[in-house]
Design a binder for these strands. Structure first.
Length: 540
DNA sequence: AACGATGCCAACCGCGAGACT
DNA sequence: TAGTCTCGCGGTTGGCATCGT
């Protein structure tokens, strides 16, 4: 099977390479007399680079060319690694939530793509930049303002509230942060052993950070600290989470910090965010997420559109099994058929799926509303969850910065309407164990964090709110985050049997047969001997 | 079916900042 | 302290895919 896949992929690679005449060895400059290659990367080069990073870790990129024989400059290697090869990259179309966040972040930061990427775990600055540029072009062509009115007013309100924040009226989010961020930080610290690309977190408590500088930009934004940007101080003057970043409710920044943090944590464990749950009750459909072509641009239905996320099109034959990619299950033909036949009205399209379809601006407005609503709803419903504390719930109302209305979701004419979804996709909404439903999505990410679910998740969550939200209370990722199983470092490889059992419980036996050590390409001995916290350079 | 416009993506380039010598 | 190295960021370009006419 793998061989067949590789052959197919090789063919497409060859085709691509032939098309692009990519090798430009003559112009690539030289290092030490060796002509440096430019243009698209081959799978062989990828393999070399991956192997090098596995052995030596990230950094010292110029040494890659010297020591690995790769005819690429260090810059090129770094770029390739950061944008395509590093683990936990989220590929594919931006979710509506991410799009919304990008707009908001850009309103705050401008063209600071790297900083924006820090708030979008798994996304690269290049991706965001490309997205923004095309989006701006589109909007400018349409004669629309760069930012939706909500975002613009939010910007204005930030200035108005520059004296607000922790000492201001709205202290609740801060209290919540203090209460819960230590747990998050602890989780992240433990996570470092599992997630190769989560850099070392400073050994400080979130509490101290919050106390020291929630109002100061330097420390308040801990999302970037989870990323390997060692020089964040460079542009640390732009407030994001700090008091200057508060909106009218004072809760907006935390909303995003939570999203970002949660996403990071969830991704580290191959889980989806609460808004990104694999909703399907049919494993086939869920599995299809990892296999169908989900390269769903804004112009395509994104319902259930998730693709097998190869690091790139040029990445067909690199054996990344040791990086967490286990052989993918066979693709049921019916899955593709089903997905391709999905009517466009079900899509959570970024540009034109608003109920009114009156244009880009309306679509963005609609997005903002729906996203806000979904967040509110999740937090409201998951009252028993450790992820949704009373503070959360209390402040969920303040998430209504965009004047959201839950009723939109059950609007029968809305593309997000519960009835329409239920009617059109009965398989999606068939009743089944929530654990069973969640399993495939989690499994996909566990196998390498290279697949993701897309807006299908939002749609389904809304459409089957009653049953699913209650299930989330016991099955949400927060449960795992706060479990002893996690805290005590089982993920770090202390006990593979426990790990495997846990995965079996969570994912079902099929997927759990890939043990953690297998997922990481380690023999069980190595796995068991690994420290609870390890780093990529520790991996063989 | 052909063609142009547009979208999307990957990669390169130049520059600046910090680290190192 | 100055020069060099390394890294990361943002801007830009080029090529393929897709869409619309």
């Amino acid at each position: 099977m793998n061989q067949m896949m590789n052959e197919i992929e090789d063919e497409s690679l060859l085709k691509r390479q032939t098309r692009s005449n990519f090798i430009d060895e003559g112009n690539g400059g030289s290092a030490g007399g060796v002509a440096l290659k430019k243009g698209p990367w081959t799978s062989a080069e990828d393999a070399i680079l991956v192997d090098y990073v596995r052995k030596h870790g990230e950094g010292n990129w110029n040494a890659v060319q010297k020591h690995s024989g790769l005819s690429r400059c260090g810059k090129s290697c770094r770029l390739r690694w950061a944008n395509h090869l590093r683990p936990n990259l989220k590929k594919g179309a931006f979710t509506a939530e991410e799009e919304q966040l990008i707009v908001e972040l850009h309103a705050k930061m401008g063209n600071k793509w790297a900083r924006m990427a820090a708030h979008l775990p798994g996304r690269t600055d290049n991706e965001i930049k490309n997205y923004w540029n095309t989006r701006i072009k589109r909007r400018q062509r349409a004669g629309l303002p760069t930012y939706p009115p909500e975002v613009q007013s939010m910007q204005e309100s930030q200035h108005d509230q520059s004296s607000g924040g922790i000492n201001g009226v709205n202290r609740e989010p801060y209290d919540f942060l203090v209460k819960n961020s230590n747990a998050i930080f602890n989780s992240l610290k433990a996570d470092q052993g599992v997630l190769p690309y989560v850099p070392k977190l400073p050994d400080i408590s979130a509490n101290s950070i919050l106390l020291k500088g929630l109002g100061s930009s330097q420390n308040s934004n801990f999302a970037p600290s989870m990323l390997p940007h060692h020089k964040h101080h460079r542009e640390s003057t732009v407030p994001f989470l700090g008091s200057g970043g508060m909106n009218n409710s004072g809760f907006y920044p935390f909303d995003h910090v939570w999203d970002s943090t949660f996403d990071t944590i969830a991704q580290s464990f191959g889980m989806q965010s609460p808004l990104d749950q694999c909703p399907s009750s049919q494993n086939s459909l869920c599995n299809s997420h990892s296999l169908s072509n989900g390269n769903s641009s804004a112009s395509k239905p994104s319902f259930g559109a998730v693709k097998l996320e190869l690091p790139s099109l040029q990445y067909p034959e690199t054996d990344l099994g040791s990086w967490g990619t286990s052989p993918q299950p066979p693709l049921p033909k019916s899955v593709d058929v089903m997905i391709q036949s999905l009517p466009p009205t079900s899509a959570l399209e970024s540009d034109c799926s608003s109920p009114h379809n009156s244009g880009l601006l309306d679509a963005l407005l609609h997005q903002a509303k729906t996203l806000s609503s979904s967040k509110n709803h999740y937090f409201d419903q998951s009252s028993n969850s450790s992820a949704a504390t009373p503070g959360d719930r209390a402040d969920s109302s303040t998430l209504n910065a965009y004047g959201t209305e839950w009723e939109e979701y059950i609007d029968p004419v809305s593309p997000f309407g519960a009835t329409s979804i239920l009617n059109e996709f009965p398989a999606v909404c068939a009743n089944k164990s929530f654990l069973d439903e969640r399993a495939p999505a989690q499994a996909q990410t566990l196998q390498g964090s290279i697949v993701k679910t897309e807006s299908i998740d939002h749609d389904w969550t809304r459409s089957s709110e009653d049953q699913t939200m209650s299930m989330m209370n016991i099955a949400g990722p927060d449960v795992y985050l706060t479990s002893d199983w996690f805290e005590h470092g089982s993920w770090g490889g202390k006990n593979e049997a426990i790990m495997t059992d846990a995965i079996a419980t969570l994912l079902g036996n099929d997927l759990a047969t890939s043990s953690p050590s297998q997922l990481w390409g380690l023999d069980s001995g190595t796995w068991n001997n690994m420290p609870a916290v390890c780093h990529m350079s520790d991996l063989p």
